[in-house]
């Protein structure tokens, strides 16, 4: 939007919403919305406490281990599916099913199988992220130009060379797209896992704060989570745009 001929930056309206929030808080219209400034000063206080840092570290750990497994398993499986029709036909129905399935329902199963702890949260995170990574890697391989593969064959590339030097790179834009969506899903997964298994990380903090009606603390944690997930999403979108140049002219 333009004001007096000056183009306003894309996300600038969030500042307006922040001011509105501050006003609602200052006039104490509702108990649930403390002023934004108070939330930030609370954030400064708890931001350095051990509890908070421990929750952050645990969440980060679960997130990175979960996405690591999702990527390390998901990309090769996707590439294999794109290359081999048999594997594709065997796996695709399941991948599609889990992609649209409400995976939240599986958390109780993970809890009874793997216990109330980090392991279940990591698996939840990986489960949220992996299917889209598989599907995008598969799509990336399937759209590879036939002549590129024939070129590799005619120059006598070994299967290993073909896999790492052709398939992976040619499918890279789609793979990265899948990883980006996978990361966004993993953020949701790691939070949902912690909420349901509420004795680790931020899940435990949420329980503590909401049980004691510590609104400022609650919002402070929420804002940290929202900003981190938003930053991750934007960063990955930026990376994806950087490789998009060669996606367009393959």
């Amino acid at each position: 939007m333009k004001i007096f001929g000056y183009q306003l930056p894309a996300m600038s309206s969030l500042i307006l919403w922040g001011i509105l929030w501050e006003l609602v808080g200052q006039f104490e219209l509702t108990f649930f919305l403390p002023p934004l400034s108070a939330i930030f000063s609370t954030l400064m206080e708890i931001g350095t406490t051990k509890v908070f840092l421990k929750a952050l570290a645990e969440t980060g750990y679960a997130f990175f281990v979960g996405t690591f497994f999702a990527i390390v398993i998901g990309i090769p499986v996707g590439i294999l599916m794109g290359k081999s029709r048999l594997i594709d036909e065997l796996l695709l129905p399941w991948v599609n099913m889990f992609l649209s399935a409400p995976l939240t329902a599986l958390v109780p199963v993970l809890m009874v199988l793997f216990g109330f702890g980090m392991k279940s949260i990591i698996i939840t995170t990986a489960l949220f992220a992996i299917w889209i990574i598989v599907l995008n890697s598969r799509a990336g391989v399937m759209q590879i130009n036939r002549s590129l593969i024939e070129m590799a064959n005619s120059f006598g590339a070994s299967p290993k060379d073909a896999f790492f030097k052709i398939y992976f790179w040619a499918a890279l834009p789609e793979i990265l797209g899948g990883v980006r969506i996978g990361f966004i899903r993993a953020v949701k997964g790691v939070i949902i896992g912690q909420l349901l298994i509420s004795i680790v990380g931020f899940g435990a903090l949420f329980e503590l704060y909401s049980a004691n009606f510590l609104m400022k603390h609650f919002w402070a944690v929420l804002i940290v989570l929202f900003s981190i997930s938003f930053t991750i999403a934007e960063f990955l979108a930026h990376l994806e745009r950087k490789v998009a140049y060669y996606a367009a002219r393959r």
């Binding site: 309206s13 969030l14 953020v187 949701k188 939070i191 909420l195 609650f218 938003f230 999403a233």
Partner: peptide, 23 residues
């Protein structure tokens, strides 16, 4: 309205909104 509301929904889309449940 695009300027005013889009960012709110973009943030909602990427954020783990499940965290709002206790609230």
């Amino acid at each position: 309205f695009d300027w005013l509301l889009s960012p709110v929904f973009v943030v909602m889309q990427t954020a783990p909104l499940a965290a709002l449940i206790p609230l």
